[in-house]
């Protein structure tokens, strides 16, 4: 009877989640009862089995499908990115009004050609729009956003992070090149320099590689020497990429 009562508490005992009284009660009992000690070992080994269950990694489909889903949700949502937060003062109302103007502007974007420059200048104050445009499904629009991002300062970490994200993950090589080019303007930031070096090591597209080689030489990033040498040594690197390295490497040495 007593044993049964104790055995019900063993899991809690092992988890350290018993009250102090119950805890010492179990401890005391275990000192003298071989039966319960055996049970304790059983429970322990069983919990061990449970805890050794490995976490399964889902297939890549999950991420792919998620990205597609997110892209299409964002495309659907884009005509109404007006902030829904309660507004506190007249300034916020102005902001809403301004963002409505922008949203309408963005909406007419496709139809009215001359609006482009106007929107670009208003965008300066509204990086959210640029951030959203950076995720647009159209490559051309993303390039537009990447180029517009030049107007921000290096303090806009959100913009810089979004650009780095484009540099690494955009499916379109032209977008990645454009992102590298814009990032070069923020090359005083160490994360930007790191990202450019990293991208040179990982990007497989030769146009992007060449762009990066030229940028890294231009910003005099000596830490890129290693990666450039690696490109030279790699048999799979096309001749014309090696040529670019040979052309630019001396300026770093």
């Amino acid at each position: 009877m007593k044993c049964n009562h104790i055995q019900n508490k063993l899991i809690g005992f092992l988890e350290n989640s018993l009250s102090e009284v119950a805890n010492s009660e179990v401890k005391e009992h275990l000192k003298s009862c071989t039966n319960c000690n055996k049970e304790l070992e059983d429970v322990k080994s069983f919990l061990n089995i449970l805890d050794n269950q490995k976490t399964e990694i889902p297939s890549n489909n999950l991420r792919d499908n998620f990205n597609k889903m997110l892209a299409s949700e964002m495309a659907n949502a884009s005509p109404k990115v007006i902030p829904l937060k309660p507004q506190q003062d007249w300034k916020s109302y102005l902001k809403v009004a301004a963002s409505i103007v922008i949203v309408i502007g963005a909406f007419l974007f496709g139809k009215h050609q001359s609006n482009i420059t106007k929107i670009a200048s208003v965008k300066n104050e509204h990086k959210e729009q640029v951030l959203a445009l950076l995720e647009n499904t159209s490559a051309s629009k993303r390039i537009l956003a990447v180029t517009n991002a030049e107007e921000f300062t290096k303090k806009d970490t959100k913009i810089i992070e979004a650009l780095i994200n484009r540099l690494f993950f955009d499916k379109n090589a032209n977008v990645r090149s454009a992102a590298a080019e814009t990032l070069a303007k923020f090359s005083s930031e160490i994360i930007v320099r790191d990202a450019l070096i990293k991208a040179l090591e990982t990007d497989k597209n030769t146009t992007v590689q060449i762009e990066l080689i030229q940028i890294l030489a231009k910003i005099q990033e000596k830490r890129a020497i290693e990666s450039m040498k690696k490109l030279l040594e790699n048999e799979e690197t096309p001749q014309y990429v090696k040529q670019q390295v040979e052309l630019n490497l001396p300026s770093l040495l």
Binding site: F109, S138, I210
Partner: peptide
């Protein structure tokens, strides 16, 4: 005039 045109090639 909608949005940029980008044409690029390595060689």
């Amino acid at each position: 005039q909608t949005s940029p045109i980008t044409i690029s090639s390595s060689v």
